[in-house]
Amino acid sequence: MGFSSTKDEGGVTVVAVDGQLIVGNRQELKNLVQDALEEGERKFLIDFAGTAYIDSSGLGALVSISKKIREHGGELRLAELNEDLRALFELTKLDTLFAIAESRTEALANF
């Protein structure tokens, strides 16, 4: 359970969320992205293929991360949301804030 970060050949930082993104671990994700921004990274993809659920604190962390990346002139995409996770974004209207791709491949192709 946790986050793993890799960099693809196109210079995109890909963060995989394994397990949950909730109040107990959201700061870890925010720190991971902040560190990458400070190292000069500007393209981010968060992959939810291994994510069981997200709570409102996790959604809030994504909102904060999105804002921070935009402030640095960067770009954030989300991918691999299952049906339940996508419904959560639609319910909160956050699907209108984020660029959401079906797959990691599709998201990477659009950077």
Binding site: S56, A61, V63, L91, K93, L97
Partner: peptide, 21 residues
Amino acid sequence: EPVLPDDIENPCGRGLFLIRS
């Protein structure tokens, strides 16, 4: 309920709304 357009960029305030939904 965080349903106004201005609420979208707010990182807080969705907890009870999610429970009720």
